[in-house]
Each structure stands twice: as structure tokens, then as C-alpha cells.
């Protein structure tokens, strides 16, 4: 992930964290990949993963959600929040994957 994409990832971290029903945010990448990347990166590494592909951005967010809200609803809200936070130019083609990794308050 280059610096711009990481910048975006950090911004999306903040977006996702405040979505109602989201109780925690996990690294979207396996721990090993993430720690390897954290060693080479000069700045904090985002938990949301952002990659650029030929068809547009590919974004993955792994979240823990509150049991109070239906998990599929929260997942959808998260994906909408991410899409809304992107530049309109890239928002349309961006592939967004929201993974619910945990349901706990």
C-alpha cells in the first residue's frame, strides 16, 4: 500500500469507527501481513485495507458490531459510510467488502 492509499485507509478507519452499531475495528489483513507492513511504513498503518486494482479501489473493513443492532444492517451501514467518504469519481467503481468479525457489546 503506498502512502496515499494508507492515508485513505487511516481516514476510513475514523469513518468506520463512528458508524452506529460498530463496536470495534480489526485489521482487515492477517496479523502477519500487517506487522510486516508496519515495520516498513514510516507512519501508522490503517486497519481498513485499501488496494488499487485495474477496475478501481478495493477496500476491506473488518468490524466488531454491537449485538443490539442486526449485524447485516450494521454491515450495510458501514459499506455505505465508506462509499460516501470516497471521492465521487472513485466511489462508483470501488469494491467494498465489509466483514463482521465479531458480535459483542
Amino acid at each position: 500500500m503506498n502512502a496515499d492509499l494508507n492515508q485513505l485507509a487511516l481516514r476510513l478507519d475514523a469513518v468506520v469507527r463512528v458508524v452506529p452499531g460498530v463496536s470495534s475495528l480489526f485489521s482487515a489483513e492477517p496479523a502477519l501481513v500487517r506487522s510486516a507492513r508496519a515495520i516498513t511504513a514510516a507512519q501508522p498503518v490503517g486497519l481498513v485495507s485499501v488496494a488499487a486494482g485495474p477496475d478501481g479501489l478495493s477496500i476491506v473493513a473488518s468490524v466488531g458490531v454491537s449485538a443490539e443492532v442486526q449485524a447485516p444492517t450494521t454491515a450495510l451501514t458501514v459499506s455505505d459510510a465508506i462509499r460516501d467518504a470516497l471521492d465521487p469519481a472513485v466511489a462508483e467503481t470501488a469494491a467494498i467488502h465489509v466483514r463482521v468479525s465479531r458480535i459483542a457489546d
Binding site: 449485524a71 447485516p72 469494491a95 467488502h97 468479525s101 465479531r102 458480535i103
Partner: peptide
């Protein structure tokens, strides 16, 4: 985490899933 189990999504560019691990914990 186990497998990713899909939720329905209306936007073809959006993929929503829950992990098997999360379901087990639930």
C-alpha cells in the same frame, strides 16, 4: 475466523459477510 459467510447486498460492488468465528461466538 473461518470462512466468510455472505449477507445479501444490492450494490454489485459491495460485499457483506460475517465470519464463521463470529457466528460460533454468537
Amino acid at each position: 475466523a473461518g470462512r466468510d459467510i455472505p449477507y445479501a447486498a444490492t450494490n454489485p460492488n459491495t460485499r457483506l459477510t460475517i465470519t464463521e468465528g463470529a457466528i460460533r461466538e454468537l
